[in-house]
Each structure stands twice: as structure tokens, then as C-alpha cells.
Nucleic acid binder design. Sequence first.
DNA 1: CGTATAATTGAGGCGAGTCAAATGCCGTGG
DNA 2: CCACGGCATTTGACTCGCCTCAATTATACG
Lengths: 245, 245
Amino acid sequence: MPSLVYSRKAFPREACNACQGCETRRMALCAALGPDELPDLERIMGSTRLDANQVLFEEGSPRRRAYTLTSGMVRLSLALPDGRRQITGFLMPGDYLGLADDDTYLQTAEAVVPSTLCSFSVAEMDALMERHGHLKDRLHEMTRQALRQARESQMILGRLAPSEKVASFLLVMAARAAEHGLADDPLHLPMTRTDIADYLGLTIETVSRTFTKLKSQGLIRLPEPHSVEIVDKRLLAAVAGIGNY
Amino acid sequence: MPSLVYSRKAFPREACNACQGCETRRMALCAALGPDELPDLERIMGSTRLDANQVLFEEGSPRRRAYTLTSGMVRLSLALPDGRRQITGFLMPGDYLGLADDDTYLQTAEAVVPSTLCSFSVAEMDALMERHGHLKDRLHEMTRQALRQARESQMILGRLAPSEKVASFLLVMAARAAEHGLADDPLHLPMTRTDIADYLGLTIETVSRTFTKLKSQGLIRLPEPHSVEIVDKRLLAAVAGIGNY
DNA sequence: CGTATAATTGAGGCGAGTCAAATGCCGTGG
DNA sequence: CCACGGCATTTGACTCGCCTCAATTATACG
């Protein structure tokens, strides 16, 4: 159950403002800035640390800050009054929080594992983007990328069978881990089965049974619940019902 | 079955270049341009007419032109090798085609009913956007709006029961019709049951049965298959499982 | 009026969800 | 070091509802 403790501590800027040498910069919004422009960003930048399951912001609350995830993983979710939940995406280092939101957050953001983020006042970031057109362009491109992911997700949610959903989930996560230069053998899945279920529109039991089935078919190995070794990517893609990925 | 006949005729520019008096301009990309800037747009603008079910472009084909829908309705869809289909959205006048696509179209676009569109060469539109920053901003805002819709769709596909799906679909379509200043009583739904099913992740039989059920519950009336009168919006929202919309 | 397509309705099976229990995994505290 | 408690995961049994298959009705078009 997500902790509601808002004890996120802002720590000294020095701890994180080495944008020059920042590993995740190439994936992030700030990739649009040259070395000479980085100080402009660092000037308005803060840092945030989140414990596992800590809430960063909640659906419906006023939006004052935007974020870039620098380490860890964040889940974005929508909730229904009766408690049902849809996770719309898992964010990885470099991803931006606040692509679609306007004056209020439209989704809830929670850390999956301990995470760190750069944070910006929305007003100051808007002003900075007016001064650096490349930033605006980069944000637009990231929004387009998010839209492509959401469309793919619509297909997965609406038209794939449970095994196909889980198989494509594994392939997508593996591809994204590779993009981020993370070791993907075995693939580390930090989120819980409940998270995966709420992302794929299934129940945790169905997710668990599907993992077991894929394992018994020899397509994956499960050394531990959060580690998945993809044995046969080709066959897994066939199960996913798609040639892509 | 969608016609594959590519007989879309470009007709004289005069027929559609009265951008000044264009009804759908306020909804469209070109709302960002002042009266003095419109000629710049008209100079690179073409027109396209589509018959019902005619394909405008197909998933995977090279992308050379972008479009703004000016009348009618277009469906965007993704397909699986085995023929399964997910409709990601229904476009209404003012909507832009090509928000997320790059050098190839990622989705298939087909007319639901006879439709007209303004068309632009991607290269020329890109150039125009460099000259008019407001255009770029407007396109970004439209991309953000599309992302919000896609997120809502993820929730609907992943976590709502069939009756809830159909109920929210009706409410969303009614709200969008109202935005566009279209009469929404009775609400006209030009798309087929198959389209609705492929949009909501259901079968046509389930969609049809759900309509019948909502009718027998007195929440809607169905004077004809493509006309829906929402009798009790409050109750329908309750069925949708949500307070919003 | 006749045909083709769309929509509705019906009957039945299967599979994902529900409910329930068991197992495994950690971290805490005795 | 071990016992305990909480939580995540797995597994089992069963139900119900959506999908499948099929037939009928309605609608549009020639």
C-alpha cells in the first residue's frame, strides 16, 4: 500500500547539479541544452528523493512542479472512486513527469522503488522554455513519444489475450531497459504483480498464472519473482501476437 | 469493409481556402494563426474528400502529408497480423492527423462517413511552423490533449466493465459533440457497432446487448441504431462508474 | 422487389475473475 | 539465532459473464 507520508526531503543542490556529467541527461528533457546552457537549468532546479511507494503527487492536486526522473522507477496511475486503478505507465530515468497535465495533476505518481528526481517550478520551466526553443521542441517530441506508447497500450489493453499481454509487457520492458543501457539479462522488474495487473488490465492471479505458464513452456525463467530471464525472445514475440518490438 | 480505392480527388483550392470564414478553424491547428497569417497557410494547403470507409493512409506507409479534418469523421486504428483491430480514436472536425507519426504512419486512418480534409506536405508544414511559433505551440497543445484522451482510454479499456465502457463512450461522444457545437439530442453516432466494439475492446454482440440493456433500463432511447438519446445523463454517469465527464 | 450488409437476439462453452488457502520471503523482536 | 508477523506471490476450486457460433431481423441500396 502506497505510503502517504510526504517526507520527501529537498537536499542541497550541489548533490545533483552536475548536469554536465549526468548519466541520464541523454534520455531526458535537458538533452536539448548545450553545455553552455545547462547553468540556466541548474539555476531553477531542485532535487527530490522518494522512498519506495512514496507518493510524489496525487491526481487532482494543484500542479506547481514538474520533474525528471533520474534514478529508480515511478508509476503513473488513474483511480476510480471504488478503488479500481489503471496504471498508465512506468517511468524510467530520463522520463518527464507532467507531459499532459495542466494546472492540476491528472494522474498520481508514486515511486516503485527508491528514486531520485530533478524538480522544477512549472512557471520557471515555462519561462526557460520560452528562452530556449530547443527545450520546447524536445518536450514536444517527448510528448509525441508518450502518445505513441499510450496508443500501443490501448492495443494491448483492448485486443490482446492475457498471455499476449504479459508477453508483450516483458518484451517492452526489456526493450526499454536496453534503451536505458541497463543490464537486461536477467530482466529486473521492480514493480509488484499488482502493478503489472493494474497496467495490463488483469488480476494479480491471472498475471501470476501467466508467468507460471510461460515458465513451464520454457519461454522464460523466474529465478526470483522480480527477475525474468527471457529464454526465447522469438517465441515470446510469437506469443505476444506481434512481430514488432 | 473499408474500401481500398484510393480515388480521393483533390479539388480546386478555391473550394476550401476561405479559411477566414471556416467554421472549424477555432477547433483546429490554424486557430493559432491571425487573419494576416492565414494566407501563408492557404498557400501550402490542399483539399481532400473521402467517401465512407475510404482509406486515407495505412499503418506503415511513408508519411508525406498531414491533415486537418474539416467535416465528417475519421477513425484511427492499429491492426494485428491476424486481423484484430484496435481503434484508438474517432476524429471530429478540427482534429489533426499526424500528431505522433514520424516518417511513417503508425496508424490507419479511414473515413467513417463522407469527409473533407485540408492537407499539407509535412515538409512545408514543418517549415511553416518554424516561421510561426504559435503554430508549433498549438500543435504541442493538441498533442497533449490527444495524450489526455489516450490515458482516459487506457482506463476505460483496462478497468471498466462492458456496461461502464459503453456508458462512458456515450458520455464522451456527447461531450465532444457539444464542444463541436453539434446538436446532441439525439446524439448521432455515425460509426458502426463493429467500430464501437473495436474502440472499447469488446465484441459487436456485447456492444449491441449493452445498448439494449441500457435502453430497457430507461437510460437511453434508440430511435435508430445510429441515434442515441441520453434520457438520464446523471444515471448514465453512475453506470459509467465515474463522476467526471 | 431482391440482395447484401448491419444489427439484434439466442444458446452454450470456456476462461478470466472471485474467493480462499498455502507457500515463500523479509524484517522485527524475542 | 530463531520465532513470529506481515506482505507478496503462488496455487486451487468454482462461478459467472463475455465470447463464440448461429439464426433472425432490420436497413440500405440497386
